[in-house]
Computed example of a mutant assay.
Amino acid sequence: MTLLGNIIWLIFGGFISGLGYILGGLTLCLTIVGIPFGIQTIKIGVATMTPFGKANVVREESSSLIVMIFNVIWVIFFGWEIALSHLFHGAILAITIIGLPFAKQHFKLIPIALFPFGREFKDI
Rank of each mutant, 00 (worst) to 15 (best):
T2F: 09
T2W: 07
L3Q: 13
L3C: 13
L3V: 14
G5K: 14
N6P: 08
I8S: 08
L10F: 11
F12N: 01
G14L: 01
G14P: 06
F15D: 09
I16S: 15
G18T: 10
G20K: 07
Y21G: 07
Y21K: 07
G24F: 06
G25R: 02
G25T: 05
G25E: 02
C29Y: 06
C29A: 02
T31R: 06
P36S: 13
I39F: 12
Q40I: 12
T41V: 06
K43H: 09
K43I: 06
K43C: 08
I44L: 10
A47F: 02
T48S: 10
T50V: 11
T50S: 08
G53H: 09
G53Y: 06
K54M: 15
N56V: 13
N56K: 06
V57W: 04
V57K: 14
R59N: 10
E60W: 05
S63K: 11
S64A: 12
L65S: 12
I66V: 13
V67I: 14
M68T: 14
I69H: 01
I69Q: 03
F70N: 11
F70Y: 13
N71Y: 01
I73S: 00
W74K: 11
W74Q: 09
V75H: 10
V75W: 15
I76H: 01
F78D: 09
F78A: 10
F78M: 07
G79C: 04
G79W: 03
G79Y: 05
G79N: 08
E81M: 15
S85V: 00
H86E: 01
L87C: 03
L87D: 00
F88V: 12
H89W: 10
H89T: 08
G90N: 02
G90T: 04
A94G: 08
A94Y: 10
A94M: 00
I98A: 10
L100T: 15
L100G: 08
P101C: 00
K104P: 05
Q105G: 09
Q105W: 06
Q105V: 08
H106A: 03
H106N: 07
K108W: 01
K108D: 03
K108V: 06
I110K: 02
G118E: 03
G118M: 04
R119F: 04
R119N: 03
R119D: 04
K122A: 09
I124D: 03
